[in-house]
Nucleic acid binder design. Structure first.
Lengths: 212, 212
DNA sequence: GTCTATAGGAGGATAGAC
DNA sequence: GTCTATCCTCCTATAGAC
């Protein structure tokens, strides 16, 4: 009996926390950290304002939690590569997984964008540490591939930014994309075609042949 | 005498208005429409809060003025093209002028990004009207070029978005770019190299040869 | 024209009833 | 655990002194 009640409470708590996280991700993505209000998040989650603060502690903590969740998703995507790998396969997998992240987590992607837009006050350490290391490791491999003639000698860091920006665009600028293409939403087919387009242009553009 | 005083006042007014616009562009770009405060803008402009409201009327009007200024800059860049033009020249000029806009007006670019991030409430009309027309006109020319074998048959709209996103990135994600590359700012040389990189990869990537 | 003072409301956060 | 009532700060905007 007690366990039953306890279990119900636990479920209610988990359900509420999930609702709050989802609502907050949407509101922070839309209005940024300062522009978001706990009131607005509570309304989007269908809960009283005080409950939101009860569950998450503070607006700031909620924001940090969401950023950490997004960074965890991002990190899950960052598998390592080596000089022995096939450039075409690696670059294509890189583009596809980044696009998949954008498609599956558009709100999280926009939250990230809003954080960077305000100068990345909460993510300085991550950007200048972990992420920089990762970029430099990849860059070294790209350079070795170029030395072996497997791809053009392009600056690897600008190439990584090209892949990030061109995929990220479909989350951050979704409103513009939908307005210009006169759509209500991008379909799975749209995403597939866009991804194919980006793989085609970027791989060809840096002289990577289509694999063995 | 009166004219002298009047002239001084006019100059003071213009100078203050310029200071307010510059400060507001920075603050709106950083925190978005809701997140920005008139107080913060006034401090950045070095004026009392009331003066800001006296000059510009309201927070909302100030925001609209800034968006219009940025759209005017954007439109000044959008020259027309025709089937007779050289694809390589047109695409390269397109990338270079978009990158120049980003470099010259990073705050305006970020302001635009923040507006789109929040769902473009103030720019719906522009996106679905003027800008859509312009994109479709360009798209038709790109398709004709593809028909004539002057470039690969890529989707022209995704190509335009690729150019917009890859250049816009250096304004919107400046904090990330600087963090990862361990710079304090991007130099003119950096911008030139990035632009050359983007021209190279994108033109080659959609099968446009380097011109006559 | 410029600034001080303040109205009137919304913001985050907390104390305490249930 | 959940919600109401409330505190105090900060917001936009304006009225009125200088």
């Amino acid at each position: 009996m007690t366990t039953l009640v306890s279990s119900d409470s636990t479920h209610a708590r988990q359900r509420n926390e999930q609702a709050i996280l989802a609502a907050a991700e949407q509101v922070f993505a839309c209005h940024g950290y300062r522009g978001a209000s706990v009131q607005g998040i509570a309304e989007a989650a269908g809960l009283p304002k005080s409950n939101v603060l009860y569950y998450v502690g503070s607006k700031r903590q909620l924001y940090v939690t969401l950023l950490e969740r997004m960074m965890a998703r991002w990190n899950a995507m960052l598998d390592d590569i080596s000089i022995e790998d096939d450039p075409a396969e690696v670059l294509e997998a890189f583009i596809r997984s980044k696009m998949e992240l954008t498609r599956r987590h558009p709100q999280g992607s926009r939250l990230f964008a809003a954080e960077i837009l305000q100068g990345a006050p909460f993510l300085q350490e991550y950007l200048r540490g972990e992420l920089r290391e990762w970029v430099q490791a990849r860059a070294r491999v790209f350079e070795q591939w170029a030395d072996k003639g497997l791809m053009d000698p392009v600056d690897p860091v600008w190439l990584i930014f090209l892949i990030w920006s061109s995929t990220q665009h479909y989350a951050d600028f979704e409103a513009q994309v939908l307005g210009i293409t006169d759509r209500e939403a991008l379909s799975e087919t749209d995403y597939r075609r866009i991804t194919d387009f980006l793989c085609g242009v970027i791989l060809k553009g840096c002289g990577v042949s289509a694999g063995p």
